[in-house]
Computed example of a mutant assay.
Amino acid sequence: MSAGRDGRAERLREARIARGFETAAAAADAFGWNRNTYASNENGNAPFSYRKAKDYAGALGVRPEWLYDAVGAMRPAIEPGYVPVVGMVGANPEGVVLFALGQEPTDLAPIPPGGTEKAAALRVAGHSMRGVADDGALIYFEDQRTPPTPDMLGHVVVVETDTDEVLVKRLLRGSRTGLYDLESVAGPTRRDARLRWAAHITAIIPPFQARRIIRAGA
């Protein structure tokens, strides 16, 4: 079988089609992936790692365990009208998003006004983001995993760097094309970072209201 005995390539193609992309090239362009690399992963000519499966799964809205090993459901089981609280942010001056690695998000929050089922939420911990979001607030973003766009410049956004860090930073132009400066709410500015994706913040819910609407998991 050209796509390999594990079926990984077929699942990648299934996820891409389910996400609404008619061709591999269209998906690669939308998420900033190398066309040839993605096509080789999808047609089975080049196996991809679990780390890459996490990247693909996040962009295509499926579970990485399903994509890589056919374990469990294709998509996370999220109650209709709710989205996952995927991590905590602001626990230190760097504004790093802390994920529960290897675990499914258990806390849920209602989809915000104007949001979609691709929305996700971050919970603010500590006071390093004072002025943007206070301790206990919820920050929503659309989890689209697409490259930065010009309308994000000058705004506080959620980004992932090529060193696997997810951050909440003000996005600024770097010294040359493809590089970005990341300005902290509190702390030093990171210069000339390479980004995998960036997402606008779509809503910030104050701490009092956030405590009322979060549905805690088991």
Rank of each mutant, 00 (worst) to 15 (best):
R130Y: 12
V166D: 01
S49R: 02
S175F: 13
P110D: 00
Y140F: 05
A46K: 14
L98N: 05
W33M: 08
G126S: 11
G187N: 03
Y38A: 06
P80H: 06
P188E: 09
P80T: 11
V83Y: 04
E104V: 12
T146V: 12
V159M: 00
I17G: 14
T163L: 13
A26D: 07
I204H: 01
D69Q: 15
S175M: 11
R215H: 14
A59R: 00
A18S: 09
Y180K: 07
P93F: 06
V168A: 00
A119W: 01
Y180I: 02
V89Q: 03
N43K: 14
L153R: 10
R191A: 12
T202H: 15
Y140L: 00
Y56N: 06
P206M: 09
V132Q: 02
G126Q: 03
A28S: 03
G81V: 06
T161F: 05
R145C: 10
A91I: 10
R8K: 13
L67F: 11
T161V: 07
P206D: 03
L182M: 08
R16T: 08
A186N: 11
R16E: 11
R51P: 15
R8M: 07
A198L: 01
D135E: 15
V71K: 14
E65G: 08
D55M: 08
L172T: 14
V168W: 01
Y82G: 06
A218T: 14
R13S: 11
A216H: 15
A18C: 10
E117H: 12
H200K: 10
W197R: 00
Y38N: 05
R11K: 09
A125E: 02
G44Q: 08
G126H: 02
R63W: 13
F48A: 10
N43M: 06
A70Q: 15
P80L: 04
R190H: 09
G102N: 14
R191Q: 12
D6C: 09
P148M: 10
R51H: 15
V168S: 05
A15N: 03
R5A: 15
G44E: 05
A199P: 06
P110N: 01
G114W: 08
D107M: 04
A216M: 14
T163I: 09
E183L: 09
L167R: 01
G32I: 07
P64G: 06
R16L: 08
E117I: 11
A186K: 08
